[in-house]
């Protein structure tokens, strides 16, 4: 494996995408595109289908037993659900969860979890990956002297950046963030947001957030979901200043939700 600062070029197209859990619909005929190296913010109240949409993108939805879907999601024109192996999808499209969820291993072992399972055994290569990923997640300076300490000894904000580093270590093209700052204080939140903005130069980012201000701060475009439907998708400034749909306006101005 040659170390290259790969730059994301992948284009995702979502066409008439619907999801059900058993008989309960979670997403109804969503159409949108995700462009390379943008931050796409996804906002909406609870039960709006944000997380279902996000998890559809790396096929985590398939782990739910009663999951059904219709429509198509393509990655560079190839069907995400038919033309790829689910493991390969999750390698190319990484995910950071709402809560910091380090595995009870050392910091180093957390970062190299993905690459090691993929068969990467070369020590130097793993070390390089560790440093690069931690740097990209703005955690290197704080963690470099204690890589072999348990990840649980980090603070909550550091743990979340560790989780970002762990996702980046797989060298994905697209990183999905599922409310990454919901458990963090404002300062840690600012650090994670800075990290996301820095990552934009190389990665495509999809950010689900309950914090509309966060979406306004970091996103290039924002999609507003309501009751499983995509209500509106536009440039961030348009969504927050002149949305077309009155429901979007109500939500971003805080009148509902």
């Amino acid at each position: 494996m040659v170390v290259t600062a790969r730059v994301a070029t992948a284009q995702i197209d979502v066409q008439d995408w619907s999801v059900w859990y058993g008989a309960v619909p979670a997403l109804r005929a969503v159409n949108l595109d995700i462009r390379p190296r943008e931050i796409l913010g996804i906002i909406g109240p609870a039960q709006s289908g944000k997380t279902s949409f996000l998890q559809s993108l790396n096929r985590m939805t398939e782990l739910v037993p009663a999951f059904r879907c219709a429509g198509r999601i393509t990655l560079d024109g190839k069907d995400l659900y038919r033309d790829f192996d689910s493991q390969d999808v999750r390698y190319r499209i990484g995910m950071v969860f709402a809560l910091p969820l380090p595995l009870p291993l050392s910091i180093r072992e957390n970062v190299t979890y993905g690459p090691r399972l993929r068969g990467e055994r070369t020590r130097t290569r793993l070390e390089e990956l560790t440093e690069r990923s931690l740097r990209a997640a703005s955690l290197w300076e704080e963690a470099k002297d204690r890589l072999d300490r348990p990840a649980m000894t980090l603070s909550g904000g550091q743990q979340q950046r560790l989780c970002i580093a762990r996702t980046l270590a797989m060298e994905p093209e697209i990183v999905l963030f599922d409310e990454p700052c919901s458990g963090l204080d404002p300062i840690s939140t600012a650090k994670v947001e800075d990290t996301m903005v820095q990552l934009k130069s190389r990665y495509t980012i999809v950010l689900v957030t309950n914090n509309t201000k966060q979406a306004a701060r970091v996103s290039d475009r924002v999609a507003f979901f309501l009751m499983g439907e995509l209500v509106e998708l536009d440039r961030t400034d348009v969504i927050f200043t002149a949305p077309r749909d009155p429901r979007t306006n109500d939500y971003v101005t805080g009148r509902v939700g």
């Binding site: 782990l63 493991q87 999750r90 995910m95 969860f97 969820l101 595995l103 993905g114 399972l117 797989m170």
Partner: peptide, 25 residues
């Protein structure tokens, strides 16, 4: 359950998840 989800999200197969993210603990 979150350990399993994290492991899957990092591209692990079902067995790899059991082997590395569940069984040791």
């Amino acid at each position: 359950q979150s350990f399993r989800e994290v492991s899957h999200s990092l591209g692990a197969s079902r067995w790899q998840t059991v082997r590395h993210a569940v069984l040791p603990f």
